[in-house]
Amino acid sequence: MSCPTGCFERSRDLKIRPLPELDACLVYVPRPPRLLRLNMTAWLVLELCDGLDFDGLVDAYREVAGDRATAEQAIEQVRQGLTILSDARLVSVPQPQA
């Protein structure tokens, strides 16, 4: 998350269980074994972390969020989601190639 030009990738071994009934999802991380509950924002950002950089994430987030988030709110929400995900080591940021 500290590399602004890197692309965000979710860890490949995660098992994601949507719980739309509870406005959440569960994420199983096998090593070390953990089961985490994410709110809707973090869940959406996790799903979008598939090779996009920060700006790409914000664009993709706004596309899904539509009128529910202004440009400023989307930036902030993506930033908060990435903080949660990187703290939990659910996403990684490969260094950009030279």
Binding site: K15, R17, P18, L26, V27, Y28, L35
Partner: peptide, 8 residues
Amino acid sequence: WSEAGIVA
């Protein structure tokens, strides 16, 4: 079960 969403 894993395919069906069991995570615990």
